[in-house]
Design a binder for these strands. Structure first.
Length: 107
DNA sequence: GCAATGACTGGAG
DNA sequence: CCTCCAGCCATTG
């Protein structure tokens, strides 16, 4: 399956623990650039992907948990992130810039 | 093949 | 800091 979704899933799976990534960054890494919305759309189907992808590590450009609603429970995404070293406040990732991970760079 | 949709983004007010 | 608006693009009916 060389679908756009699979590309997104692979990149998301590359996100290390304790780090987060943005839709725009993933889209840009894939070369689509402006298809950030498609990345989010793919995440919605991520629940059907194998192996499961750490969708909870993917947030919008502001570090806001935009997709928390798509999880089994809206708080589940925050719970998962809190399980990491990440800290969430008002549905936003604290130190977002510090925990932000860019695909390919590995920084 | 056209129209609608969406876990987005950046700029302007 | 917050809200509104228009662009963008793959997937689906």
């Amino acid at each position: 399956m060389d679908s756009f979704y699979d590309r997104v899933y692979e990149v998301v799976r590359l996100i290390p623990s304790g780090r987060v990534c943005t839709y725009g960054a993933i889209a840009r890494y894939l070369g689509t650039g402006k298809s950030a919305r498609m990345v989010g759309y793919a995440m919605r189907h991520a629940g059907n992907a194998r192996p499961p992808v750490p969708a909870h590590r993917v947030v919008n450009s502001s570090g806001l948990l935009s997709g928390k609603q798509a999880f089994a429970s809206p708080s589940l995404m925050q719970e998962l992130l809190e399980s990491e070293v990440l800290k969430i406040k008002n549905d936003k990732v604290l130190n977002f810039r510090s925990v932000l991970w860019l695909p390919g760079t590995g920084h």
